[in-house]
Design a protein around this nucleic acid. Structure first.
Lengths: 135, 135
DNA sequence: CGGTATCCATTCTGATACTG
DNA sequence: CAGTATCAGAATGGATACCG
C-alpha cells in the first residue's frame, strides 16, 4: 500500500543518505522554510535579468524594507544561491548575482510565481464562493 | 533597458488586468505567502497519492500539530485547491483530495520539494564554507 | 476521529535612527 | 549607497483541554 514518503521517483527516503522533507528532522525543511520567507522567491526571480544592485532590487520589489532585503540577501548568499560583489568605489557599489545553483532554483520558483499570477483569478473566485457558503 | 517587471514571458504587468507579484498591492502576494506557510506545500504533495484522511496526513507529515494541519487544510480548501468530504459515519470520516486546480499547483510545488531534496547537500556545504569564512 | 478554543512562546517584519 | 542596531507590533506555530 502506498504511503506518504513512498514517492513516485527515487529522491525520497531519508535513509540511505537521501533527503525527505516529509520527515521532521530532515534538513530540507530549513530550505523549504527559507523559501517561505516573504522575499526569497521574489529576489531569486528578480535576479533573472542579471546582476543587480541593492537599490535596484529595493525599487523592484514593492514594499520591501532595507532591513528585510539585506537579511534575505545574506541568507541566500550563505546558502550558495547568490554571490555578493563589492566594488570599493565612493560610494561603494554592491552587486548581487545568481550562482549556478541559484539559477537552477530560480527556474523552479519562477514557476510558482508564474502559476500564481496565472491562477490568481481562479483562487479569488474560489475564495468568494467559499466565504459566501459559510455565511 | 530591462527592469524588474519586464518578464521574459507575457504574464507580467499588473496593468491591463494581469498580475505581477513584484508589485506590493498585487493579490498574488497572498498566494505566495500562503505557499510559504510551513505545511501548505507538503500537504499538496502528500495528496499526490489520492484522497487522504486527516489522521493519515497527520502521521505522514512529521511534526505537524492537529491545529496547524486543520488550519492549513481549511485555507487550501478556501482557495479551491482541495476538497473536503465528510462521511457521516460513527466516528465521522473526513477525506481531503486535490481539485484540478490544486493538482496543477501540486505539480509545481513538488518541483520545489524535489529540488530541495536533491540539492540540500550543496546548500549545506555552502553554509559551512560561508560560516567558516566569517569566523 | 476530526475539530474547536485558549493561551503562550517564538519568529518575522518593519519603522526609525545612525555609521562608513 | 549599502549596511547595522534597536525596538515594537504582527503573525506564526504549538501545547493543552474540551466537544460532537
Amino acid at each position: 500500500m502506498a504511503e506518504i514518503g513512498d514517492e513516485p521517483d527515487e529522491l525520497c527516503h531519508f535513509t540511505g543518505g537521501r533527503y525527505n522533507a516529509f520527515l521532521e528532522a530532515c534538513p530540507t525543511r530549513q530550505l523549504l522554510d527559507e523559501l517561505g520567507n516573504k522575499w526569497s522567491c521574489l529576489v531569486l526571480v528578480a535576479l533573472s535579468w542579471g546582476p543587480m544592485r541593492h537599490g535596484e532590487l529595493r525599487r523592484g520589489l514593492g514594499g520591501v524594507s532595507q532591513k528585510m532585503l539585506t537579511q534575505t540577501l545574506r541568507t541566500l548568499e550563505r546558502d550558495g544561491l547568490i554571490t555578493r560583489t563589492v566594488t570599493p568605489s565612493v560610494p561603494v557599489r554592491v552587486d548581487y548575482e545568481l550562482t549556478p545553483l541559484g539559477a537552477d532554483l530560480r527556474a523552479v520558483v519562477q514557476q510558482i510565481k508564474v502559476w500564481a499570477e496565472a491562477n490568481m483569478g481562479a483562487v479569488a473566485e474560489a475564495r468568494s464562493t467559499y466565504d459566501s457558503a459559510v455565511a
